[in-house]
């Protein structure tokens, strides 16, 4: 099923990013999110000053694959760390220490662990940022005066014009019916 994307424009001729609705409390935005989810939208998001408990289910979000990436990179970091130490001890600069075999692995455990931790930490932070499409310098929503309260105490739902089901009138009515205190158009 593929329909040609409709490109919406404002009267001034600027492309439309989407529609932004403000909600007063976490409960309001939670229940509104359930309604938007049930209406079948895909390109939309809930914005809140803190992660609202259970919003993943209310939005019908799938679980992130981040832990798999982090686990894989962490383990490969540990392998690289161990391999490097083994190479140094047996090939690079083979020296008899404690009268033990060159490759006796027990002494390599602490550094292997630390390198694994280092890779895990970097992949958790950088993976989170990359999956989130960050860093970015600007976003259409951040040009909205009302939206700048999102880090303070306001809650928002934004539905993007790129969503196949987007139509300005219908989205507006849906969000108002879901209890939005204000609805406005966001230019791209």
């Amino acid at each position: 099923m593929s329909t040609a994307p409709v490109i919406y424009q404002t009267e001034a001729g600027k492309p439309v990013y989407g529609i932004l609705a403000e909600f007063a409390t976490p409960a309001d935005v939670y229940h509104a999110a359930e309604k938007v989810r049930d209406a079948g939208f895909t390109k939309w998001d809930v914005y809140s000053p803190f992660p609202v408990h259970g919003i993943e289910e209310a939005m019908g979000m799938s679980r992130t694959k981040l832990p798999l990436l982090v686990g894989a990179l962490g383990l490969s970091g540990a392998c690289i760390g161990f391999g490097f130490q083994y190479w140094v001890a047996t090939q690079g600069y083979a020296t008899v220490v404690h009268g033990k075999p060159y490759g006796s692995w027990q002494a390599f455990v602490p550094v292997t662990f630390e390198i694994g931790v280092l890779f895990t930490a970097f992949s958790a932070l950088l993976g989170m940022l990359i999956f989130n499409g960050l860093p970015r310098w600007h976003h259409p929503l951040l040009a909205k005066e009302r939206f700048l309260k999102v880090g303070d105490d306001k809650f928002f739902i934004g539905i993007e014009a790129a969503d196949g089901k987007f139509d300005p009138k219908g989205v507006r009515d849906l969000l108002l019916a879901a209890g939005a205190t204000s609805v406005e158009l966001v230019e791209d």
């Binding site: 998001d45 809930v46 914005y47 809140s48 000053p49 992660p51 609202v52 919003i55 993943e56 939005m59 979000m61 940022l129 989130n132 960050l134 860093p135 970015r136 310098w137 600007h138 976003h139 929503l141 951040l142 999102v150 880090g151």
Partner: peptide, 8 residues
């Protein structure tokens, strides 16, 4: 880093 408080 351009954080915008998105739930996703």
């Amino acid at each position: 880093l351009g954080w915008r408080f998105s739930s996703r």
